[in-house]
Amino acid sequence: MEFFLPIAHMDVNIVLISLYGALVGFLSGLVGVGGGFLITPLLIFSGIPPIVAVSSGAAQMTGTASGASYLHWRHGNIDFKMGLTLLIGSWLGGGFGVYLAKLLLRAGQFGNVVVFLYVILLGIIGVSMLIESVRAVARAGKPGAGTAAAPAKPKSLLRDWMQRLPWQTSYPASGVRMSVVGPLLLGAAVGILTSLMGVGGGFIMVPVMIYVLKMPTKIVVGTSLFQLLFTTAAVSIMQAGINHSVDPFLALILILGSVLGTKLGARLGARLPAEKLRLILALVVVAVAVKMVVTLLIPPGDIYAMTIEVR
């Protein structure tokens, strides 16, 4: 069933795009990740121009994050002071990233940069998740696994460095005190990634907030979602305003697919053991990274490719 996308200016199979949304939503519901890092490569594999894939992916995440953020807000799980500090950073980073995307587009290097960023990030994340989840599955199979002590955490040099930074302030909702510079830098890094890769950055934000900023896990998830919602919203607006690259039909199809997938994933996720869920996600992430590497290594059928400027 073909469907014409006015901004991408191409026909896509509506069933396939909905399935992509549903697959990413399913994984999101299954293991609690945003899934932005999967949707962009899948769209690029379908022939959608990288800039439209990245921008529409940001708009799609705004849609999927709004419902979840609302629920966390109702349960009081958002540290607004921390969220706003992160947001200022991510808006600045996001603005810089959109401008960078424009420069890369002009130089014809946007596609290369996106693919390499994905290979590096998905490779690192996928392999580390795979190692960790294989170990967890092995541990779960041994007797007395449930009572095994957690491995000692190494002393964080980053945290020590952050305690020496200026403009220390307290974040009462999270029960921590730190410099505003740390969350600002973290937000800026995530904002740049959102602009260049169409990802929410939860896979960086959440571990840093838990292990470096020492925030309570419950508050971390809500605050990360709050930051994600307004970062992706700002990036979506900027991509539409500067690069005219948000395809509304594509984003809406993805939102509908992902909401359905999330609900199915959440139901199944409640029945499966956590370590096996993480293993599934790790395998998916590694598979996408491998596919991207293979694309880079195999000689193309035709070394020439054509892009049409739509006017």
């Binding site: 709004s66 419902g67 629920l71 979506s236 539409a240 305003g241 939102i255």
Partner: peptide, 17 residues
């Protein structure tokens, strides 16, 4: 861009929350 992003938020809210 602004209105469409707002629409995405509302659709997400309506479908999810």
């Amino acid at each position: 861009g602004s209105l469409f992003t707002l629409l995405c938020m509302l659709v997400g809210l309506a479908l999810n929350a």
